[in-house]
Design a protein around this nucleic acid. Sequence first.
DNA 1: ATTAAGTCTACTTATTTGGTAGGGTATTAT
DNA 2: ATAATACCCTACCAAATAAGTAGACTTAAT
Lengths: 135, 135
Amino acid sequence: MLSKKSQYAFKALTYLSEKFNDGPVLISEIAKKKKIPLKFLENILLELKKANILDSKKGKGGGYFLKQPPEKIKVATVIRLVNGPIAMLPCVSLYFYERCKNCNENHCGLHDMMVEVRDATLNIVENRTLRDLLL
Amino acid sequence: MLSKKSQYAFKALTYLSEKFNDGPVLISEIAKKKKIPLKFLENILLELKKANILDSKKGKGGGYFLKQPPEKIKVATVIRLVNGPIAMLPCVSLYFYERCKNCNENHCGLHDMMVEVRDATLNIVENRTLRDLLL
DNA sequence: ATTAAGTCTACTTATTTGGTAGGGTATTAT
DNA sequence: ATAATACCCTACCAAATAAGTAGACTTAAT
């Protein structure tokens, strides 16, 4: 399951996608419109900024905005960043790989199945962007 | 990600699948062979028994065994039981559904995408059984 | 009766999640 | 120049969940 933080992140990013050409958007505006705790949202947006997904402008007239257009930001990227691994097992994760203790990956049925699940999921989230989350 | 508990559960179930026609298997044997903390494993097996996946025999010569043959036990069932929801969002879960607050499911891009992810995953785990985890 | 084995209730501990507090720092309109 | 604005940063806290443990109890075979 996606954490609440991830769900907040997606709500905020969706909002920023809609406002992509309207200049910086206040954290407080996003928090209010999307009903996200303000200080928590600050942390999330800062993290997204550090990951180069968002950029910000300080001072009067400042705020946050997408660093790239919505169609350039993949859903998979956001999930990995805010939520963590997409795969169901560490030994099957591409970006958070950890080898299995006590289980040979070369002949492990669970492993093989989870590779399939991972690929089925990636096939969707790697090919969808913030643009696709709008209607 | 699957919890450690879930991974233990799959290891134990795989072991019991291999021994399906050999009569009851000791918890301690499973724990040793699969390197699972004994008391933790006790809890897991008991839970699986209460869910009608396993059965057991007490006393000397007792132990645990699958209640049905491996090919009758779906991976999806085990995941739901031990790990919880398979879907990435509560508003998209079939067995653990909770409605979205502040987001209309009828026009929410994230929701729609997560339905796709859920179905892609279910397509695999609903059609695989413990039998498929063996080699 | 003794021993082997699962059952049950109840803890404990560690980790993660969700959220808060409050001052610091950069920017810019005036 | 400066005051107001708005993001930045460090640290903390509480609740929930995950992981593991303890010990007494019940049941069945010999």
